[in-house]
Design a protein around this nucleic acid. Structure first.
Lengths: 234, 234
DNA sequence: TCAAAAGTGTTGGGGGTACACCCATGT
DNA sequence: ACATGGGTGTACCCCCAACACTTTTGA
């Protein structure tokens, strides 16, 4: 075949995008995922990843961003293609191929707790998010694995935090994603050695113990360090 | 949308797979890619990645394997999904989304030099493979980058070599992919420390200097080491 | 005997890991 | 004063990187 036919009149699969939207609660040390409850068959009443069909006049990335904006009202967030799932029987309605994306959102800052939109939507702990519709369990598992790997060699933890954060908060994000404890002193040494954070002259407020210094991610510094071949392996 | 409509009567994009087939010549130290010359518009006469449309009754992986078998007569080779390319205008004939795969083939062993099939097919040095049809330049670039990363933390160099190979050949594969020289002693120490190779009681033949010992990849050992959490970072 | 590649050990330095105590703040 | 988390330094060890010569074989 090799793209050589100008006409391609055979039946086509449908193409969708699904988004694995990750967030963290700053206090609970848990990785969360945004799910939507289905109100139609198949899988009626079950929870599923937000997603939808790709339109002919939009790229895959645009489709993912559009769906995400529709579901979460969030724009300008970290979004990356994950994998494309194309088993023949993954959707009982017919042949639907889905291009999965994963997104990191600054839950604490922008999204009200217990956010829901017109459709029933809710944040779930990733461990509670089981028995999802379609092959979404599988997609979620792949996304968690990818996130774990990614965080090991690129500094994306900030994407899950508000613009100003403490090093302890950042460490909690990493521990949550990696599912293991990190040594506080080593973590700080490492992160600060990347030279991509600005220490602010500001400290936590409304906290009932010694207030921690706030930091901000500096993307110019990050680009500079990346040019210089810095590798951000934790 | 969210997969909630049982009917989906909107126009659908076409879905294709394209394969970046990598190989190495054992003597020339160059990474090669298999290309096919187009004999129809658009991009008539230009070289392109082998690929074709996905059928409704086969998974994406199956489609990639089928195309690969059709193009190279090879089965049972290393194949992995790369990325899905879905820019609106990537194909002038209309909306065609392509799921790209990359494959590693044991060129020296199985494929005759200068292999071609009915369509004009040929191996190109990856550096000479430019001005390809569609967005295939871009796909190739992404594949090279992925291969470079992958080889750094998973031992896939063997996939490009015949079953029996010398350590120097293996090192050449790594150097070719990574595009940098490696220290011979350190390379051998590292590779052998993974404990995934069997040293054979066999040596090179028909070589006009001291013959090197042959090794074979042992996939049981590999699985064992992987269970034990061995990481294969070079 | 020469050419060409195979094969082999050691050392120094940097970075990762492990580890414990004092400090600042609010109640 | 006490409870709670914030913040800091050091020592050891392992692994990575750098480095050069001898051996084997065929021509």
């Amino acid at each position: 075949m090799n793209h050589q036919n100008d006409l391609y009149d055979y039946p086509r699969p449908a193409v969708a995008v699904d988004c694995v939207v990750f967030g963290v609660e700053l206090d609970e040390r848990e990785l969360k995922v945004l799910l939507i409850q289905r109100d139609n068959p198949p899988f009626q009443g079950q929870w599923a990843l937000p997603g939808g069909y790709v339109r002919l006049d939009e790229s895959l990335d645009d489709a993912a961003r559009r769906e995400l904006a529709e579901e979460t009202n969030l724009t300008d967030i970290y979004l990356e293609q994950l994998y494309t799932f194309g088993a023949v029987d993954r959707d009982p309605r017919g042949r639907i191929i889905t291009v999965a994306y994963y997104a990191l959102v600054k839950l604490g800052d922008y999204l009200p707790q217990g956010y829901t939109d017109a459709r029933d939507a809710a944040w779930f702990s990733v461990d509670e998010a089981i028995r999802l519709a379609f092959d979404h369990d599988c997609i979620l598992a792949v996304a968690r694995e990818r996130l774990r790997n990614k965080v090991g060699y690129e500094p994306i933890g900030f994407e899950l935090l508000p613009p100003k954060f403490t090093l302890t908060e950042l460490q909690n994000v990493y521990e949550t994603i990696l599912e293991r404890a990190l040594d506080k002193r080593n973590f700080r040494k490492k992160i600060l050695s990347f030279n991509i954070l600005d220490a602010l002259d500001e400290i936590q407020k409304d906290v009932m113990h010694r207030a921690a210094r706030l930091y901000r991610f500096n993307s110019e510094k990050y680009e500079t360090q990346k040019q210089n071949g810095m590798n951000f392996q934790l």
